[in-house]
Design a protein around this nucleic acid. Sequence first.
DNA 1: TGAAAATAACTGACTGGTCAGTTATTTATT
DNA 2: AATAAATAACTGACCAGTCAGTTATTTTCA
Lengths: 212, 212
Amino acid sequence: MAKDFEPKFRRRAEARPDEVLDAAIKLFAEKGYAATTVDQIAKHAGLSKGTVYLYFPSKKALLEGLVHRAVAPIADMAIGMISRYRGDPRPVIRQFIYTVAANFGDSHAFAVPKLVIREAVTAPEIAQLYRAEVIDRAIPALTALLAQGIEGGHIRAVDPELTVRSVMGPILMHVMLAEVFGVLPEGGLSMDRLIDNHLTILFAGLAPEAGT
Amino acid sequence: MAKDFEPKFRRRAEARPDEVLDAAIKLFAEKGYAATTVDQIAKHAGLSKGTVYLYFPSKKALLEGLVHRAVAPIADMAIGMISRYRGDPRPVIRQFIYTVAANFGDSHAFAVPKLVIREAVTAPEIAQLYRAEVIDRAIPALTALLAQGIEGGHIRAVDPELTVRSVMGPILMHVMLAEVFGVLPEGGLSMDRLIDNHLTILFAGLAPEAGT
DNA sequence: TGAAAATAACTGACTGGTCAGTTATTTATT
DNA sequence: AATAAATAACTGACCAGTCAGTTATTTTCA
């Protein structure tokens, strides 16, 4: 059943929910959740408002749908990389950071986390979903990785849970400066240069011989 | 002329704008800008809606007023501490971080920055105001401090502008995790422990002898 | 001193517009 | 023809901003 013709109407369109979500994230990212109307989302997806309500029961369900769609792949990919690893954590940290940065560095992929942060006050359920699916999986994984590296003598005795902030914080700050305030270092986003600079400092700071 | 009685009307009420802003930041922080009505702010300040519009021309002007009021003291205090300092930057960095953390660590003081981040998409002027008054003053100051420390041989040759992210990022991440998602390390916010852990790693990582 | 006049502070009902969600109707598909 | 998909018109709640009028405070002047 080749669909070579232009489908003006497509019945039974199971691609519809995704198209609606695509339109929603674009507009939410541009103008914010509250300032975006369901009608605009519908028009942008080439639909009427009523049709949107065929697939999503409410405007907030669009937000939930977006987070659901975005959350699983990120978390799985990133966390699978870490868990149960044994040995010097530094190569894994480097790889993890590059993977996360590749996602967050492009503003399209950062749109959902940004939206979650923005709407956390208005929609706490969304923030909690994100927390449960991403944060509460990533932090323990990184913490365990660090703890294991300390035990193995690969890095020195720091607080593993707090050190997670030292590992990821600079990346977060870099992206937030760029995305929220448009603050870029000389010569553009320079994500690779940032990571290099960060990891140089971090790994030197974590090196066992650097301790007392 | 002791005013022991409750003044229902207060002429020449120059305290009013501040009272309105107090009510506004409380409600904006609790429920977000869009979900807060001017009437609620008025009621909360013990006023009618009309009176709010005597002092502020629009709802957005409340937002601007809040940022204006919050921005100057933070920036001045923090930046005055840094500029034109010569010598080993590490003690100054430590002091700067403790000062910033003392402000951001309590959620009352973090309310305005958080609001700015949330409304940056909806109200870019506000984000730009915050950037001009805080970020574009703090980053160059820290960058210069680091550059000068590198020249003096107190810390090793890293990229000063990017290293600002390594200095402040972990604090930002710690506060955001706590404020946005309610993620705290075991045993509460532990801002002091976080700073200790962070600075131990950072200073070891920046130490000249740690280099090649 | 004290009452009337002037003015500053404040009020709340109203308006015009917006928008999430619903429903009656039309259009496509089998 | 029957049914599923989609539409467009509609509804009702909500809210920013306005304004005509009210109340408290100060000033003026006898």
